[in-house]
């Protein structure tokens, strides 16, 4: 039994009276891969959003390691969100930044790295996903799969040696 990194406990969530999550509990251990499968509209994305702390839960709780995060307020949450990486269904890369800028953004703005270090690190991770030559291209010039790889590089660069977990929304085409 590996130690638990991210877990949900009896999570309830509803939008405008429509109950989407009814008491979902799950655990993700270190190095473990969990797949959530369900038909369209069954709440897969909602669950991921709750786990990524982007949506407050109605009841129940989300834990990162042993911290009960769903009770925190918006201001304190921001810092913890960076611990949970998120690849969105439509990737949502920042349109006003190059691929390199996108990967650097989280490192500079959130983790407080120096620009030079962040650039080196970002280049390294872009190279890992095979996009070293696309570093200076803007998202609208990249294909869907390439955008997804940029997002992954971004998420992985942010994690690095630190603990954390990654949620991938939508089909993984590659």
């Amino acid at each position: 039994m590996s130690d638990v990194v991210l877990s949900a406990e009896d999570v309830h969530k509803s939008y405008d009276g429509l109950e989407v999550l009814r008491g979902v509990s799950m655990e993700v251990g270190r190095g473990e891969v969990k797949v959530i499968i369900g038909s369209s509209g069954s709440g897969k994305s909602t669950l991921l959003r709750c786990l990524a702390l982007l949506e407050p839960v109605d009841s129940g709780a989300v834990f990162l390691e042993s911290d009960r995060l769903s009770d925190l307020r918006e201001k304190q949450l921001a810092a913890h969100r960076s611990e949970v990486g998120m690849v969105f269904q439509r990737f949502n890369l920042f349109q006003n930044m190059t691929a390199l800028g996108n990967v650097m953004c989280g490192l500079v703005e959130v983790r407080g790295l120096k620009k030079r270090e962040a650039r080196e690190r970002a280049r390294e991770f872009l190279a890992r996903v095979g996009l070293a030559d696309k570093a200076d291209n803007y998202p609208e010039e990249l294909s869907g799969g390439q955008q997804q790889r940029v997002r992954r590089a971004d998420v992985c660069a942010g994690r690095g040696a630190r603990p954390g977990s990654v949620g991938c929304d939508g089909r993984d085409g590659t």
């Binding site: 990524a52 982007l54 201001k75 921001a78 810092a79 913890h80 969100r81 960076s82 611990e83 949970v84 990486g85 998120m86 969105f88 439509r90 949502n92 890369l93 920042f94 349109q95 953004c105 989280g106 703005e109 959130v110 942010g158």
Partner: peptide, 21 residues
């Protein structure tokens, strides 16, 4: 696109930073 703000929030950026960057 609202997705841009969502992505920035997921990164852990604070509101003023999301607006500015």
């Amino acid at each position: 696109d609202p997705g841009q703000e969502l992505a920035a929030r997921a990164l852990g950026m604070t509101r003023p930073r999301i607006l500015r960057r």
